[in-house]
């Protein structure tokens, strides 16, 4: 594994974003729109704050955190699609670039986009709704990192599936992340889910993150149990997602599909 090659691909995306207004919009447009719409709904519902204490931090915090997970996933799968769309994929894999270097470079691209998106969302939330996400405390950072890792796992699996099934599976880049939303308990506690979904939710790292966030906001303190569960599951999933990608990469090379991607 060579850092040079990871940096090379990182710069390939930096060059791309530097001059592409539509791509910059993609980083900002949807998150900002989400924040504006849901933010005002939250402000409206906050009138009933007696029934729903700390409604703004619950809702806006969840919204920003969910966007972090979703953007982390997209940072990998959409950046991969950029190479497919530009029919450059074969040039990359005809070079000494390895699959792990490729994935790490996408993670780096995704992480950078994420920092930009999250910073702007956090600033807007403060400006529009006087909501300072950092008031949740320093404890937020390990939870955010867990969401990023879960987003990466979904992104790697999405990429592997697109490699295997071709561009017909492109829609997964936008859809797969949302599949986890209902069981991630983003805007509501796991307890409101029916029992079978609760059973699934206990295997979803994000559900512990959102439960943890609500616990921090309502009770304070540091929900170590939630963090450890989330971390443990994430370690398993990120390892499994890499193994799945590697296995799939071998399969597509055997089936001759790697050279057909983007055709």
């Amino acid at each position: 594994m060579r850092l040079n090659r990871i940096v090379a691909l990182f710069f390939r995306h930096v060059y791309l974003y530097r001059r592409s207004i539509p791509r910059i919009m993609e980083v900002l447009y949807w998150p900002v729109l989400d924040l504006v719409v849901w933010g005002f709904i939250t402000v409206y519902l906050a009138q009933f704050r007696q029934n729903l204490p700390k409604f703004i931090p619950f809702f806006l915090g969840a919204l920003i955190l969910w966007d972090i997970l979703f953007r982390a996933q997209q940072g990998i799968s959409v950046s991969f699609l950029e190479d497919v769309w530009s029919r450059n994929f074969l040039n990359l894999f005809a070079s000494p670039l390895g699959p792990a270097e490729y994935i790490f470079s996408l993670m780096l691209v995704g992480f950078t986009k994420l920092i930009v998106t999250a910073s702007i969302m956090a600033a807007l939330a403060w400006f529009l709704y006087s909501f300072n996400i950092f008031l949740v405390g320093i404890s937020l950072i390990p939870f955010v990192l867990n969401l990023i890792v879960m987003g990466w796992s979904i992104g790697i699996i999405t990429t592997a599936l697109i490699l295997r099934f071709g561009q017909e599976a492109e829609v997964l880049a936008w859809a797969l992340g949302f599949l986890f939303m209902p069981v991630s308990a983003v805007f509501y506690p796991v307890a409101v889910l029916p029992p079978f979904l609760q059973a699934i939710a206990q295997y979803i790292p994000a559900s512990y993150v959102f439960e943890g966030m609500r616990s921090v906001i309502s009770k304070g303190g540091f929900p170590l149990d939630e963090l450890l569960w989330s971390l443990g599951l994430n370690i398993i999933y990120i390892v499994l997602s890499f193994l799945f990608f590697y296995w799939n990469f071998r399969v597509v090379k055997k089936k001759g599909l790697l050279v057909r991607i983007g055709e």
């Binding site: 710069f11 390939r12 060059y15 190479d83 074969l90 040039n91 005809a94 070079s95 000494p96």
Partner: peptide, 30 residues
């Protein structure tokens, strides 16, 4: 590392300049 490839059916990233493309591949091949 000591080989290379060119095909008329494979493109370079079309939103990059000529020089940027070569810079990316120069890094990839160290």
């Amino acid at each position: 590392q000591e080989a290379n490839f060119s095909s008329n059916y494979v493109s370079m990233p079309n939103s990059l300049t000529v020089k940027e493309c070569l810079k990316v591949f120069a890094r990839l091949y160290q």
